[in-house]
Simulated assay, not measured.
Amino acid sequence: MDIKDLKVLIKMVTETDITEFEMDNSDEKVVIRRGPKTEYVAVAAPAPQAYAAPQQQAPSAVAAPAAAPAAEAPAETGETVNSPIVGTFYRAPAPDAAPYAEVGQVVEKGQVLCIVEAMKLMNEIEAEYRCKIVKICKENAQPVEFGDALFIVEKL
């Protein structure tokens, strides 16, 4: 591929909503990505406090013991795989097919984790490194926004 063809490809990517373009043939491989590579960290907000109106109690009534605070779910640790585009999240290539990845599965670099459909284009989201799937953050056929966490993974 010469520089003129490469410039045409780059212009095509920058003038559209495409965030990643990959072309592979027997002699060469071209990957064009645009946009910053951003790592997102989720932080849990404190639970909102409900307002309770003062209650009228009879003089002989005994106050009830305070309820024990609910045990917080352990936070998932690891890296996140985020959606590079706005679209619809699909775990499998077809409704009747097996999912690309399951919780606990070890995936290799370049292995497809899911599909995000945008404007009738199926964009395969691949693992950027060898990792283990800790959590799948979205349900099948759920809409996703740019930067939404799709998976929580543990680098291996």
Rank of each mutant, 00 (worst) to 15 (best):
V81P: 10
A44T: 10
G104F: 01
V86R: 13
K138A: 10
I133L: 08
P69I: 01
P48A: 05
A98C: 00
A61E: 15
K109L: 02
V41L: 13
Q142G: 08
E126D: 15
Q49A: 14
V103D: 12
A50L: 13
I136L: 09
V106Y: 04
E102G: 09
P74I: 00
C137R: 12
Y40V: 05
V41A: 12
P46H: 11
P59V: 01
Y40I: 03
P143C: 02
A75V: 00
I125N: 13
C131K: 11
V86P: 08
S83N: 08
A64C: 00
Q105Y: 03
T80F: 07
A67P: 06
V106F: 03
A127W: 01
S83C: 08
A63R: 09
F151T: 00
Y129F: 11
A63M: 07
E139G: 14
P143Q: 05
S83M: 06
V144P: 13
M122H: 08
D96M: 05
V41H: 14
I152Y: 15
P65R: 04
S83F: 05
Y90L: 05
A97R: 07
A118E: 11
A98R: 08
A58T: 02
K109E: 13
C114Q: 05
Q49D: 14
A149P: 13
V43M: 12
F146N: 14
V41I: 09
A92C: 08
Q55R: 15
E76N: 07
P99M: 05
A66I: 00
V43Q: 14
G78L: 02
A42V: 00
I136E: 10
E102M: 09
A66H: 07
L150P: 10
Q105C: 03
S60D: 12
A127H: 05
A50V: 09
Q55S: 15
A42P: 05
A42M: 09
C114F: 03
T80V: 06
A92N: 10
A98Y: 02
P143N: 06
I136M: 08
A118P: 12
S83Y: 06
A73P: 06
P48C: 06
E128L: 05
I133S: 10
T88Q: 11
G147T: 03
I85C: 07
D148E: 15
E39F: 11
C114N: 07
A50P: 11
P69W: 04
N123V: 01
A68W: 02
C131I: 02
Y40K: 09
I133N: 10
P84T: 01
G78K: 02
A45H: 11
E108R: 09
G87K: 04
A141M: 12
P65I: 01
V86D: 13
E79D: 13
A141H: 09
Y129I: 00
N82S: 09
K120Q: 15
A127G: 05
F151C: 06
Q55T: 14
A127R: 04
P54N: 11
A101S: 12
A141S: 14
C131V: 04
R91H: 06
V116L: 07
V153E: 15
Q57H: 14
A68H: 04
P65H: 03
N82P: 00
K109W: 01
P59Q: 07
L113M: 06
S60P: 00
Q57N: 12
V43K: 15
N82C: 03
T80I: 05
A64Y: 03
P46D: 15
P143S: 04
A101I: 00
K120I: 08
A63P: 04
S60Q: 09
A52W: 12
Q111M: 03
T80E: 12
E117V: 01
E124G: 13
